[in-house]
């Protein structure tokens, strides 16, 4: 018998627990030739802001040991372009679309949430309070419990959609931020965003990235991310979406066993555009081989057997 892979995130019914991580597949369309978007649990699109953003000067990306550092700087066409052009085009893919939003002030988050409330084709909002690549806003909110709570509360007040707060690992204790977000009404938490990082170009004796700092992702951060999910699972009741260096189903299982009800594939998409589908297929294969009837049985299972 085929195992059940459907999961429920904040009232959102997903056919399987595999999502794309925001920013790694753009708005999804470029990936359609290589990845069956309708086979995903949800498509989390690139963060949008109120106004279009030009992004950071290049270089914006570099490879590091088992990882990638990027500093795109939230380049995006703005929320109006999303509503007018992009969302209508995404309707044909038959996949729930989760829109990621970021503001420079708490008020901008509120206005974005208000603007997107009632817009067709959006399944949920992911509140990006953790982008390390923009100077104003972004990560500043996600590293302060009080500001995290204020942003989440304002977004909740301005939308009827499920609200997912995306947390930064660049904090002293992620449980405190998780509690603040959940306490302010977040319906689910995504963790983790990238780790603040940098590379020096030794030949030129200067920072390699145009933005100096960037966000580290890929397998290098996976153990950090699994730890964060483990801690958050013990701290809050809301469902968790785990991400950080998931390349294959085996990695996704680590997050699920640590307490994630869904997972997001990010950096792997850049390497293999079909990676997210492979993770979903691998999960099904694992459930079948292990004789597990429902993926939900595995969520947080490692807490019950150890730790």
């Amino acid at each position: 018998m085929k195992a059940k892979t459907a999961v429920d995130i904040a009232g959102l019914k997903l056919k399987n627990p595999v999502l794309t991580a925001s920013g790694t597949v753009g708005f999804g369309e470029e990936y359609a030739p290589y990845l069956d978007l309708s086979g995903l649990g949800a498509l989390v699109v690139k963060t949008v802001t109120l106004k279009p953003r030009a992004g950071n000067p290049p270089p914006r990306i570099t490879e590091t040991p088992a990882g990638v550092i990027n500093a795109v700087g939230l380049q995006n066409p703005g929320v109006e372009a999303l509503v007018a052009d992009i969302l209508p085009r995404l309707a044909r893919f038959d996949v729930p679309v989760i829109v990621s939003i970021a503001g420079e002030t708490a008020g901008e988050y509120a206005r974005l949430a208000g603007r997107l409330d009632g817009v067709p084709g959006i399944a949920a909002l992911e509140v990006n309070i953790s982008c390390p690549n923009v100077k104003a806003g972004g990560i500043a909110f996600g590293t302060e419990p009080a500001m995290t709570a204020e942003v989440v509360r304002l977004v909740k007040e301005n939308t009827a959609l499920p609200v997912i707060a995306k947390l930064s690992p660049n904090v002293t204790d992620i449980r405190i931020i998780a509690l603040a977000a959940a306490g302010a009404g977040a319906d689910a938490l995504s963790l983790i965003n990238t780790l603040s990082a940098m590379v020096i170009d030794v030949e030129r004796r200067r920072p390699l990235l145009g933005n100096v700092f960037g966000g580290l992702s890929g397998p290098a951060v996976r153990p950090v991310a699994v730890r964060a999910v483990w801690q958050a699972y013990r701290a809050v009741e809301v469902p968790l979406i785990g991400m950080g260096g998931i390349m294959a189903a085996r990695d996704a299982l680590e997050f699920i066993l640590a307490g994630a009800r869904a997972v997001a594939v990010g950096t792997a998409n850049l390497v293999d555009p079909g990676a997210a589908a492979a993770v979903a297929a691998g999960l099904e294969q694992y459930l079948a081989e292990q004789g597990i009837g429902d993926v939900n049985e595995l969520v947080g299972a490692a807490h019950r057997t150890g730790g």
């Binding site: 790694t24 597949v25 470029e30 990936y31 992004g55 990027n70 795109v72 380049q75 998409n269 555009p273």
Partner: peptide
């Protein structure tokens, strides 16, 4: 030329 991510226009890393 620029340092590149996805190569298919989605990640917007290779900017000029």
């Amino acid at each position: 030329e620029e340092r590149m991510g996805c190569g298919i226009g989605a990640c917007v890393c290779c900017s000029c």
